[in-house]
């Protein structure tokens, strides 16, 4: 019993520095996160609201609301008439989540624009999902109501999973929102 206790003490003594450092670093990082995360969130929010005029043609400002699909931004023009919606959604990419903004018409049945907010896909391959040329293909309404990769939207060579993730996320958003028009 005594031997075990001695061994335990020895281990503690050897790792004391590590324990202390972990504590100090953990606490300081927690504090830094507490201090900085509101600012980081504000930056992300500003990026979203900054994209809204490009995603919903004719809109100048927006208000955040809740919808069956989570938070949604209602986009208005100068005279406060509803121009469309911007829905933030997230898809599962090749290397991590892909966060995107989808611009929708006021009746929420057509896509007016897609923007990639955050992604960690392979640079040079999957990261091409952020290219405006590719994202503009979503502005053409698919005949079936759903986007099909390779038919309505070009698959990006070398980035099948990334492009499929974006297409799926957009389709899913359309499915959720195109249900019987309830006002929200």
């Amino acid at each position: 019993m005594n031997a075990a206790l001695a061994k335990c003490k020895l281990h503690l003594k050897r790792s004391a520095l590590l324990l202390c450092l972990s504590l100090i670093i953990g606490v300081s990082l927690g504090a830094a996160d507490l201090l900085l995360s509101p600012r980081i969130l504000a930056n992300r929010e500003a990026e979203t609201t900054g994209q809204i005029p490009a995603l919903v043609p004719g809109s100048t400002h927006s208000r955040r609301q809740t919808s069956p699909a989570g938070d949604i931004h209602a986009a208005f023009n100068e005279t406060d008439a509803l121009q469309g919606w911007v829905l933030p959604v997230s898809g599962r990419g090749f290397a991590g989540p892909i966060e995107l903004l989808i611009g929708l018409t006021p009746a929420r049945e057509r896509v007016t624009g897609v923007y990639i907010l955050a992604q960690s896909e392979t640079p040079g391959l999957g990261s091409r999902i952020t290219s405006p040329t590719w994202l503009n293909e979503f502005k053409t309404r698919p005949e079936s109501g759903r986007y099909r990769l390779g038919r309505d939207i070009d698959g990006l060579s070398g980035a099948t999973i990334s492009s499929a993730a974006v297409v799926d996320a957009v389709n899913q958003a359309l499915d959720t929102l195109a249900k019987p028009q309830e006002a929200f």
Binding site: L29, S37, I40, N43, R44, E47
Partner: peptide, 8 residues
């Protein structure tokens, strides 16, 4: 964290 807050 700092980059996210100040050089977004």
């Amino acid at each position: 964290l700092l980059m996210g807050a100040f050089f977004y």
